[in-house]
Design a protein around this nucleic acid. Structure first.
Lengths: 103, 103
DNA sequence: TTAATATATAACTAAATATACATATAGACA
DNA sequence: TGTCTATATGTATATTTAGTTATATATTAA
């Protein structure tokens, strides 16, 4: 995969573009969390969460450290939440303009 | 697909998360463009561009209007560019911190 | 050393996505 | 009407991605 800016941007966006990973990020917005806290909160299998976390980690969106048996994840850059906020704003606007169209 | 916020956010992000579509958006940042201008600029097949545009349109990211034979596309919400800018900033930061690690 | 716990990875299957090529549609105009 | 041009869509194929189950690894503690 050519390392031009479009590919790099797409890779980062792809890493975020999954409902489970967005939900994981939302958990991490409240602070560091170990896998053992994340997967019950999301009510999905532990290996599944580990896979999603490894995708986020590969793209540099989260980092981890070990603490005994636990692996604790954190978000590297708060801008990720600004991105999610912008998406939400866009969705709202889109929804509103559609409502107008039907009003 | 359940219509919860995470799915909606993921759908929007997935629509942007492709190098060709990012490049299309970058073209449209300079103003409205017809398909006939976009596909030569990107040097890809016309049907390919039409498909990518339809994905962006389905998610409400672009709109189109007809003008004679041409179909002219435009971006609906400038926030899309703010999102791409934030991704670029994140990539730079990530790159810089990696450089430090090797310095 | 053995057992228990937390996490990661492998292997498989199913589903989604991207691309290419061919063809269809729709508008302009002779 | 027929033809040309611009765009969209159908279909097949290849690739990627997601989820599940089983298993491996690593750390702690008995």
């Amino acid at each position: 995969m050519a390392n031009n800016i479009y590919n790099l941007q797409a890779d980062t966006l792809k890493a975020i573009a999954h409902p489970t990973r967005i939900e994981i990020l939302q958990q991490l917005q409240q602070g560091e969390r170990c896998v053992c806290e994340i997967f019950p909160a999301l009510n999905i299998e532990q290996p599944n969460v580990s896979r999603h976390l490894s995708i986020l980690k590969k793209e540099g969106i989260v980092s981890s450290r070990k603490e005994g048996l636990k692996v604790i994840y954190r978000v590297n850059d708060q801008r990720i939440f600004k991105i999610l906020d912008l998406v939400t704003e866009m969705l709202k606007e889109h929804w509103d303009s559609r409502k107008e169209a039907f009003a």
